[in-house]
Write a protein that binds this DNA or RNA. Structure first.
Lengths: 332, 332
DNA sequence: CTGTTAGCGCATTCAT
DNA sequence: ATGAATGCGCTAACAG
């Protein structure tokens, strides 16, 4: 393996000049630059990253800790982050905390040890409840999850608003007994519950919300139980794609016609939601924009560590499909 | 930040002893060991990874380059790899090549620069066609994609067999005109086409296979075209989850009753395939096992760089659902 | 504009 | 079992 000194000899210059050229620093003549590049190419030289990082005390690496990589939402976000990061000469370490605070702590520790330039994180509720960006040795930007009082840069959906609009849509379509199944494990779920409750209250309707683990099976069971009750809901609303999947399973199992007997709505415009029978009405999140905004925020924070905390709040898009058609009630 | 010399002073020993203790090397008295550990804890010492890597010439890092992170198959595989890797003291760099040979090359280059211990890779067809593990400076294990002659460790599904069994199942259920939509961009798709063709030939039926890009929209369009033909197929079979999604969209758009008018089958037991109306019959892949086997192979290869090339071939599981019910034909 | 040189923090000889 | 000393390959400070 060629080292920097070999390149220097080959080009007939000093190692300092080689370093300058390869780091794109100014203060090198065109001639030297060209010769160094030729020599580097001829020797197929690659700088040793470990040495460079040790010496420069920079890693040009950002960490991305998502809470569940199986969730297509995070998959999309991570694509945006990666794309942008590499464009800015940053590498990405992608980690999956799996909604597990222990794993999350492990990875944050790892980030510290790796001496990353910064981290983008979708925190568990436990972590978020006491989160302060200043507790970390590196800049942190939160995505998807953030409470109003959290002292950290963040990019989130306007969850309250989105859930409010979705609920409102169901109400407008004539549904009254609207049950909400939401993920209790995240700030996002709680905020969406707020929006739902608000809309129901404004309409003078009774809210019926179930806090669940963000697991398909739990949503399915909860939906089955609700639908088996004496006064089953006319509409089911889920706070994210996973729970929506569980709701869909339950409705299908019971063979209830949708939307005639049961309307369905949820979050996340996943590939399959327009596939199931009447097509599901959902709030679509601007996933790519979210990832984009997050890394933008992070890069700026890295450049300006002491700037004021900033928050980017994006709006969800209501996509209406057959599952929330106008309710037809027998005339009184 | 505490450095190794601080720990040494605090413990009243030399840096060499500290290094030995923290690397878990033998040749240290119990007493010293305890004092070093206490000192490290007291100072909240973390070894500088850049320095350690520079000096030791090891990174304890493995690279995982998947061809499409949005594909749930790879998401599952990556979970298995991560779990195992951390258990073995290896860190994982997860990269998404997006089925793009350029990105793939970029990441392989990155792996080289990062000096990883080894790489797990699902190669594009272009790369695979001329792939030799010996061309790389690090051990490589292929996952999901591999040709018979490829000189590299690999973990794959028995694609020919799986497709053969799936086709056979359709034939047994009375379907004759069975069209196959497969991803032309991967070895996997081609092998599944082999299995399909073989089964059709054995049954004396004419194969009708369409090579497609692994994109939902293309599968949808192809399926629409097939179904609009003068003699439309009685069954559609897709070579992976994405294409199956496209097929499902087409069938739904046309409002064709499934399985009466059109049977459907495919690969990958994704969450939604049992959700769509009659439930889709699929071949399920043992994704976690695949990831597990891959890293197992890699770790052994790292330990034994010159051992013979090995291949793990796993069997797919046929999961029968409503979409392939017995075909009812009018008596002749 | 260019070269010389001193470490970055650690693992690893080689003594003892 | 322990410590002193060396240098991994590079960047950055400084001198010229």
């Amino acid at each position: 393996m060629a080292r920097i000194i070999d390149v220097a000899k080959h080009a007939g210059v000093s190692v300092a000049s080689v370093s300058r050229v390869l780091s794109g620093l100014p203060g090198v003549s065109e001639d030297t630059r060209a010769r160094v590049q030729a020599a580097a190419k001829a020797l197929n030289y690659r700088p040793d990253l470990a040495a460079r990082r040790l010496r420069s005390r920079r890693t040009d690496t950002i960490g991305l800790i998502v809470s569940d990589i199986r969730n297509p939402f995070f998959t999309e976000v991570s694509r945006a982050v990666e794309d942008m990061a590499y464009e800015h000469g940053q590498r990405v370490i992608l980690c999956n905390a799996d909604e597990d605070p222990e794993k999350e702590a492990f990875y944050l520790e790892l980030m510290h040890n790796e001496n990353v330039s910064g981290v983008i994180l979708s925190p568990t509720l436990q972590l978020l409840s006491q989160f302060r960006a200043s507790d970390y040795t590196f800049p942190v930007v939160l995505v998807d999850r953030c409470e109003r009082s959290t002292e950290a840069d963040a990019v989130v959906l306007d969850n309250v608003d989105a859930a409010y609009r979705l609920t409102e849509h169901l109400i407008e379509r004539g549904h009254r007994r609207i049950a909400f199944l939401y993920g209790a494990g995240s700030a996002t779920g709680q905020q969406r519950n707020e929006g739902y409750s608000l809309a129901m209250a404004r309409a003078g309707l009774a809210a019926q919300a179930s806090a669940l683990r963000p697991v398909v099976a739990d949503a399915r069971d909860a939906a089955l139980e609700l639908l088996a009750g004496r006064q089953p809901p006319e509409a089911l609303m889920a706070s994210n794609g996973l729970l929506l999947l569980g709701v869909a399973e339950a409705v299908r199992e019971l063979g209830l016609p949708c939307p005639e007997r049961i309307a369905v709505a949820g979050f996340d415009d996943l590939p399959w939601v327009r596939l199931v029978d009447p097509g599901f009405t959902v709030i679509a999140q601007p996933t790519y924009d979210i990832g984009h905004a997050a890394i933008e925020l992070l890069l700026q924070r890295i450049a300006q560590p002491s700037q004021a905390v900033r928050r980017v709040v994006l709006r969800g898009e209501l996509i209406v499909r057959g599952s929330t058609a106008q309710r037809v009630t027998a005339p009184a």
